[in-house]
Amino acid sequence: MAAGYRTHVSIIADILFTAKQYSYEGYDSGATVTHLIRKANVPHQRLSSIVSTLTQSGLLYEDSAKYRISEKGIEFLRAYSEFKGFAETFGLRV
């Protein structure tokens, strides 16, 4: 699959994946905004808007100025992976 551009959903998945890495995989304190910007590769203004939406949706939660993924966020990532495979089967992006 070409990496020409990223869809909005794939950027959300990148943000959640980064938050997940910093929540469970060796880092248990959560991801800072800097971590999210660096790993998800999005500008600060756009990241703030997306993170705000994700927090309101219950996929992320803020803890001492750091972001951690929720159970609902992990479930979203699992579903994203599954449906990404489905769309790629048709040669499409999610």
């Binding site: 869809t7 579903a79 994203y80 449906f83 769309a87 048709f90 499409l92 992006r93 999610v94």
Partner: peptide
């Protein structure tokens, strides 16, 4: 139906088109 379940879950426009 599977494509709709994908759209309902991850809100992808391409899944809605499918």
């Amino acid at each position: 139906r599977f494509a709709y379940s994908g759209y309902a879950t991850v809100a992808s426009p391409n899944l809605l088109r499918l």
